[in-house]
Amino acid sequence: MSLDCGRKPEYPKELGFRVQIFEKKVDSYKKMTKKFSNAVEYIKHQAGEAEKKIKSEFERLHNLLYLEESKRLEALSNDEKDMINSMQRMIDETEKDIAKIKELIETVKKEMGNEDLPLLKNFQNVKRQAHWVEPDAAFLFDSLINMGKHVGSLGFNIWNDMKAHIKYYPVVLDPNTASPWLSLNADLTSMVESSERVTVPDNPERFDPVVFILGAEGYRTGKHKWDVIVGDNPKWILGVCKEIVARKKKFTVSANRGVWALGLSKGVYTVHTDQRTELTVAQCPEKIRIKLNMDKGEVSFWDGGRETHLVTLKHKFEGRMFPIFGPGLHTTPMVLAPGKIAVHTS
């Protein structure tokens, strides 16, 4: 066996290809490093925004607690003054009675010091004067401060009064899933078209290029309900989706893609299951209520303002299901409505 000395070996060429591949890999890694560095700055931005929001909310709650404290201390002070004034009046009246009784005592003693004949003549008159018909001094009911009213179950009563100043949202938005063309409010309860593409990391959870966003919490069991104010927005999609729904490519909204939804486009309401079905709606709802029953495998849509049922979709949901929102690109925001806070005691 012999080598053809007139022919150049292929080894350098093959190794050159590998070098090119590695150089491209290096470039790719450098770009990824840049993205990671940008993500670090974004995480710092997130932390800063969260810190500002937390401090702002605690300051608001501190102010509310301070006002609540002032109100309760003022009520206690007023009760104290009223009780003391009432007790002082009783003291004054009792001291007046003591003075009157002492006068009677002096009168009777003076008459008792007279000779027998004058005392006998004046006895009936003295007897009438020595008669006392005023009631004895005594405590009245509710003379003391009602301690139960002021300090009984104090923490609970403060919290119960505070709930009027606190909003509860059954669902809040997950900004890490938001399309770069969406802008969210600080409370994560409102979404609207951004005037320009927002600079955010291209993390795997984020929808791009499709304009969607998910709720922050997924559900495996139980009943869940949330209201979304759509107003007069001409195009939107609302519903639930699987956690594995596609994020980085356009897709048709359907159960085959892991989405069960109701949508509005060009004046037509459409139910999105395995196929699209037009839904006749008597009056255009401004608030859509979504009820998810994981145990029964149902998601239903309601006109939240009129409390009327629109449609129910059935499926044996598996894994976690997330609220999904497609607000469309409009200047009018799509808003999550706060839920009712109810206190149950037993």
Rank of each mutant, 00 (worst) to 15 (best):
K8M: 05
E10M: 05
K13R: 13
E14P: 01
F17L: 14
V19E: 11
Q20D: 12
Q20Y: 07
I21P: 00
F36P: 02
V40G: 06
H45I: 01
K55W: 07
S56Q: 13
E59T: 02
L61F: 14
N63M: 08
L65D: 02
Y66A: 15
L67A: 14
D79G: 08
E80S: 08
S86N: 08
R89P: 00
R89H: 11
R89I: 04
M90N: 02
I101M: 13
L104I: 15
I105C: 05
E106G: 04
M112T: 05
G113T: 13
L119K: 07
E134N: 10
E134I: 11
D136L: 11
I145M: 05
G152N: 06
N157Q: 09
H165T: 02
L184A: 06
S190Q: 10
M191S: 13
E193M: 14
N203H: 05
F207D: 00
P209T: 08
G215C: 11
E217L: 12
R220T: 10
I229D: 11
G231V: 04
N233A: 13
C241V: 01
E243Q: 13
V245W: 08
V245H: 07
R247M: 02
K248M: 09
K249E: 14
K250I: 13
V253T: 03
A255S: 10
N256I: 00
L262G: 04
L264Q: 02
L264W: 02
S265W: 03
S265H: 12
T270E: 03
T280I: 11
V281W: 11
I288H: 09
R289M: 15
K291Y: 10
G305L: 10
L310C: 07
E318S: 06
P327E: 09
G328I: 12
T332S: 06
T332D: 04
T332L: 01
M334T: 15
L336I: 07
G339Q: 05
I341Q: 13
H344M: 05
